[in-house]
C-alpha cells in the first residue's frame, strides 16, 4: 500500500520533468535552426563562389567581403560614411516621426481636423518622396538636410496614419469614463488618447524605421558624396562589388539593430500589453 502512495507522488513529477526537458530540447533545436540557416547559406555561397559555379565577380566569396569590411574599417573611410548616414537617418527619422505623431493624434481626436487632413494624407502617401528628390535638392541643396527631408517625407505617412488609427480605435467606453470623471482636455490627451493609441502608433514607427533605411540608401545614391548609399553606388559603378556588399551588410545590420531597439522601447512604453 505504502509503495503505491510513493509511486503516485513521485511519478507525475518525473513525468512532467521529462516533458519539460523535451520541450527545452525542442527550443534549443529551433534556436539552432535560426542560427544555422544564414551560416549554411553563407557557406554555400563561399563554396560556389570559390569553385566559380557562380560568378565570383558578381558574388564574391563572403570571406573576402569580411576582409574588405575590416580593410575599410581600418582605413577609417568606412566609419565616416557610416556616421554621416546614421546622422541623416536619425535626423530624418525624428523629423518625420514627431510631426507624424502630432498630426495623427489631432486627426484621431478632432473630427474637423480629420475631415480636413485625412484625404490629403491619403492622397499624398502613395507618392514616393524619392521622386521628389530633385525638387528637395533644388530647395535645400545637396546637404544633409535635404536627405533628412526625404527620409522624413517617407517616415511621416505610416506614423501619421497609424497614430490616427490608434486614437480612433480607442474603445468609446474609455471616452465615457474620462468624461464622467470630469477629465479636462489636457488630461484626456495625456491619460487616454496618447497611451491608448500607443500600441498602434509604435507599429507605425516600426514601419517608419524600415522605410527610413530604404530611403537613405536610395537618397544617397541619387544626390550625395558621402554615406553608405554613396559607398554602395560608387563601388557598384567602379565594379568593386565587395565594397558594395559591405554597404549592404551594414544597412542590414542597422535594420536589425533598430528593430531590436524599438521592440525594447515598445515593451518599456507599453507595459500593459502582454
Amino acid at each position: 500500500m505504502e509503495k503505491e502512495v510513493i509511486m503516485a507522488a513521485s511519478q507525475p513529477v518525473a513525468y512532467e520533468r521529462k516533458k519539460w526537458e523535451k520541450s527545452q530540447k525542442k527550443q534549443n533545436y529551433y534556436r539552432t535552426l535560426t542560427l544555422f540557416s544564414p551560416i549554411t547559406i553563407l557557406a554555400l555561397w563561399e563554396v560556389l563562389s570559390r569553385t566559380a559555379l557562380i560568378d565570383p565577380r558578381f558574388f564574391p566569396p563572403p570571406s573576402t567581403i569580411i576582409v574588405e569590411f575590416v580593410h575599410l574599417a581600418v582605413n577609417g573611410n568606412l566609419s565616416s560614411h557610416v556616421m554621416i548616414s546614421l546622422y541623416r537617418i536619425l535626423g530624418g527619422f525624428f523629423l518625420g516621426v514627431i510631426p507624424g505623431i502630432l498630426l495623427g493624434l489631432l486627426i484621431g481626436m478632432y473630427k474637423p481636423v480629420r475631415y480636413t487632413f485625412q484625404p490629403l494624407v491619403m492622397a499624398l502617401m502613395p507618392i514616393p518622396t524619392l521622386a521628389l528628390m530633385p525638387i528637395i535638392i533644388i530647395i535645400f541643396g545637396i546637404t544633409d538636410f535635404s536627405k533628412m527631408v526625404t527620409i522624413a517625407g517617407s517616415v511621416f505617412f505610416p506614423v501619421c496614419i497609424n497614430t490616427a488609427a490608434g486614437v480612433s480605435n480607442i474603445d468609446p467606453i474609455f471616452v465615457d469614463v474620462a468624461k464622467n470623471y470630469g477629465a479636462k482636455s489636457k488630461d484626456y490627451f495625456f491619460k487616454i488618447a496618447l497611451p491608448g493609441s500607443l500600441p498602434v502608433m509604435m507599429e507605425g514607427i516600426q514601419m517608419g524605421q524600415a522605410i527610413a533605411l530604404l530611403t537613405i540608401v536610395a537618397a544617397e545614391m541619387i544626390g550625395a558624396n558621402s554615406g553608405i548609399g554613396y559607398l554602395i553606388w560608387m563601388d557598384y559603378k567602379a565594379f568593386i562589388l565587395k565594397g558594395m556588399y559591405v554597404g549592404l551588410v551594414i544597412i542590414s545590420f542597422f535594420g536589425y539593430f533598430f528593430s531590436i531597439l524599438l521592440r525594447f522601447l515598445q515593451r518599456r512604453l507599453i507595459p500593459w500589453q502582454k
Partner: peptide, 25 residues
Amino acid sequence: SMIFQEKGVIPWMTVEENVAFGLRM
C-alpha cells in the same frame, strides 16, 4: 460618478492608477 461594466477599467493604468483616476481628474 458612474460605475461602468467590467471593461470600463482602463487597460493602460495599473489597478492603483485606475482607482485614483477620478481624484486625479
